[in-house]
Amino acid sequence: MAQDPENLARVVLFDPIRQNLRTTRYALYELGFREIDTFSALGEVRERVEAADVDLLVMEPEDDPKVFSLVRDIRHSRIGRNPFSVIFLTCWTRDPQNIRQALESGADDLIARPFSTRFLDERVAAAIERRKRFVVTSDYIGPDRRSGPRPGAADPRYLNAPNTLKAAAKGDWEALEATYQHIKTVQEDVAKERVQRLSVRIAADLEISNPSSPSAEISVIKQARELERLAERVGPETASIAKALTKSLTDGEAGAPGKRWRVARELAHGVCVSSGHGDSSASEEIDRLVGKLREKQDSVAKDGGLEKQKGLHSAA
């Protein structure tokens, strides 16, 4: 990427080791970036993202796995104004767990240290000109890294993520402002898509899970609260039904767990329909997912494989 004195991109760097911060900052400066904030405390990064727009984040998660949660919070619009900021994570070791968490968090790229300025230039150029399209599922927003469709999985929602880094790095104020306006529209579409997918998943979970299981109850309530948060962006009717869904699950005076779950399942269906998913298509999607989850449950029970349990909800 050619150096540009008009580079408007706002960059945030995080690394507990200050020498790494200096090295990365120098490399980015050489590439033309000028507005670079460096932090060695993750809480300060979160505050910075909340306070002002960020076009590029470069973070080291090896000594602080909370970085992965921060990436997910950004992607899911829980903090900040730009859930589509370009995010690079760095690593010193090829730890499989760190790699998996980095990819699942929604980061754009995982860069092995030490890296040269030239290599970083290539990764930045790729993020600007050849950024992967994003995929939206019930619990993931980020680059699509799949080699092909997953058997039995619902068709994901694809989108070309608004890329403020592209406009900012080229010093194009007009394009940058237009991109931020586009982000608002895409966020609304993403929220609607996630409401539909998450409500289908909750309805399926309520169908196949045991109401008397504390772990199942905790899981469903957690999903319901996330659904309630997302539904606020879709509309008052959807938000009202989602709120009633959460209440039906948490109100201990509303009857036995089995009864409360039956009510909650109907409300989850109602959330899906009110958000724009037709009544028949919502029912078909719920039934399809219930069938897939039952098949996986039977497979896990038959084989006794713990690893298979990890993918129980991949169909959503």
Rank of each mutant, 00 (worst) to 15 (best):
Q101L: 14
L13R: 05
I286M: 11
T38S: 04
V234Q: 09
R25M: 10
N98C: 13
Q19C: 12
A167C: 09
L8S: 09
R229H: 10
A204V: 06
K170W: 00
G152K: 08
V54A: 08
L57Q: 01
L230Y: 03
L312D: 02
R150S: 13
K243V: 01
E226H: 06
D4Y: 11
L42G: 01
G305Y: 14
D189Y: 01
D205M: 09
L165N: 09
E35V: 08
R131A: 13
Q223P: 05
E50T: 07
A264Q: 11
D144A: 09
Q187I: 00
M59I: 03
G278Q: 14
V234S: 02
V45A: 10
S280V: 15
V263D: 03
D63R: 13
Q97D: 15
T179N: 04
P114S: 06
F84R: 06
L42M: 09
E44Y: 02
D287A: 11
E104Q: 12
Y29S: 11
S212T: 09
R157V: 15
Y180M: 10
E193M: 00
R123S: 10
V263N: 06
S219M: 12
L13G: 01
D63A: 13
R25G: 08
S69V: 15
G106A: 13
D4L: 13
W261G: 03
E266K: 15
L31K: 11
R229M: 08
L245C: 02
D109Q: 12
F115C: 07
P5A: 14
L57P: 04
K302I: 05
S219N: 05
V190G: 02
V200W: 00
L289W: 06
D303Y: 06
G304A: 14
Q19M: 09
N7L: 15
R94A: 12
A224Q: 10
A154R: 04
A256G: 11
V186C: 04
H76K: 13
V135H: 11
V136H: 12
L120T: 09
L70E: 05
H277I: 00
F88W: 09
D303T: 04
V273A: 02
E285S: 07
K222L: 08
R34F: 06
I36S: 04
K296D: 02
I111S: 06
S212H: 10
K259R: 14
R100T: 08
S314P: 01
P156I: 14
R118V: 12
A264K: 10
K184E: 10
S40F: 01
L120E: 12
K292W: 11
A315T: 00
R225M: 13
I241E: 05
R288E: 11
R10Y: 00
V300S: 03
G80I: 01
D55F: 03
V58R: 05
S248G: 09
R72A: 02
P149M: 08
P162Y: 04
A52Y: 05
K170F: 07
E284M: 15
L230F: 07
R130K: 15
R10W: 10
A315N: 05
N82L: 05
K132I: 13
N82H: 00
V67G: 08
I208M: 08
P16S: 01
L293P: 00
R78F: 02
V190I: 03
K302S: 10
K184Y: 00
D63G: 14
H76P: 04
